[in-house]
Design a binder for these strands. Structure first.
Lengths: 202, 202
DNA sequence: GATTTTACTAAACAGTGTTTAGTATATTTG
DNA sequence: CAAATATACTAAACACTGTTTAGTAAAATC
């Protein structure tokens, strides 16, 4: 049955084509200006076609978010697992911050926007997010086992670190750092991972 | 010239009426479902009337944000200025977190949403935000003068504390804490102000 | 009392996400 | 191979959206 296989291949190719066009538009124009019609126009299909591959606009952006997470998780793998746990934490943090600064639109999609999470009710509906979180959690757990950090609960520790980094990125990304000169934003964010590590260490 | 005064009074009354209706709708239905038409319907005027009082939808929501900030700043005044600086910081943080938990929609408007910041280019266009920030900055400065905290720069210190608190609220508000049981969210946020203070102290 | 200003609105415009009915083409079946 | 079916796609419509324009009563001024 070679035909069925080919059809399935064509189906995923079309899905990827839509997703890629949507991602390019979203990165350069944002969510509101990435309409179903402009995506359709870019790939030279009718708007209705997109609904044959995605239930609605939020689901399309959920798929885009999944893909963005796979890119981040891929980058997480450069963390040297044989290094000192605190060093692992530093590396993970730096990869995270670098990703956020280099892909602001995708970071926004993954951690700020409401729309891609519309169909996410329970934890299982967001396993890409859980997977990324697990990297941090595991390292914090290791740090705790070796009594390197001041936390008594690994979740509290992981969320403390994550929240701090996310807070910086999110306030910056959504234009709330107007009191800080623009050229200081990136250095401040870059330096934050070292300062938070210094602060949580025993 | 009593007529001119009355007209001006009526003008601000109408503005406030629109703002109040818009705020009520926004708090219970969110930004997207608060259309100019539904606001107009609620106050029993035509949609075009709203444009006689606000340039566009973002400007209306900017005014709403200004008002939300004035409520927060009002609450900031309960901080006991004769108390120990660290205690002042604790009180300020608690007021901030309480406000965020009790007014999630308004917090979102003030610190996350893009739309109300559309017309904000420079720092002067956001003086409500700067004013709120100044409360935190001043306390951190006092803490530094008495060598109570480990910071060498008051802006870095203020932003460290703010980012941590904001990160927690923002991740929670935008549904990214799916890995933590729902009933733990509020306690985690409530406790964070104490944990961050413990961590930054000398 | 005539004129101008003010406050408001009906209707339209161009755009949005989404659905429905219908049409060619490709595949399968008799 | 021809007929029947399934597939992939689209044109057009629906009910919205933010916003603008032209026009109309009423109020204020002269």
């Amino acid at each position: 049955m070679g035909i069925a296989e080919r059809k399935e291949r064509e189906k995923t190719e079309m899905r990827d084509l839509i997703l890629q066009a949507a991602t390019e538009l979203f990165v350069e124009r944002g969510y509101d200006d990435t309409s179903i019609r402009t995506i359709a126009e870019k790939i030279e299909y009718s708007p209705a076609t997109i609904y044959l591959y995605f239930k609605d606009k939020p689901e399309l952006f959920h798929a885009m978010m999944d893909h963005a997470f796979s890119l981040l998780i891929e980058k997480f793998s450069v963390v040297d697992k044989s290094a000192h746990p605190i060093e692992q934490l530093r590396q993970l943090g730096q990869v995270y911050m670098k990703y956020a600064l280099e892909n602001p639109a995708l970071y926004d999609l993954m951690f700020i926007m409401r729309k891609p999470m519309d169909h996410v009710a329970c934890a299982e509906d967001w396993d890409c997010g859980l997977q990324a979180y697990h990297f941090l959690y595991t390292i914090i757990e290791t740090c705790m086992q070796q009594e390197l950090v001041r936390f008594t609960d690994a979740h509290v520790g992981a969320i403390t670190v994550w929240s701090h980094l996310h807070g910086l990125i999110a306030l910056n990304l959504r234009g709330r750092f107007v009191m800080i000169p623009e050229e200081m934003h990136a250095p401040l964010i870059q330096a934050s991972i070292d300062s938070i590590i210094e602060i949580i260490q025993n």
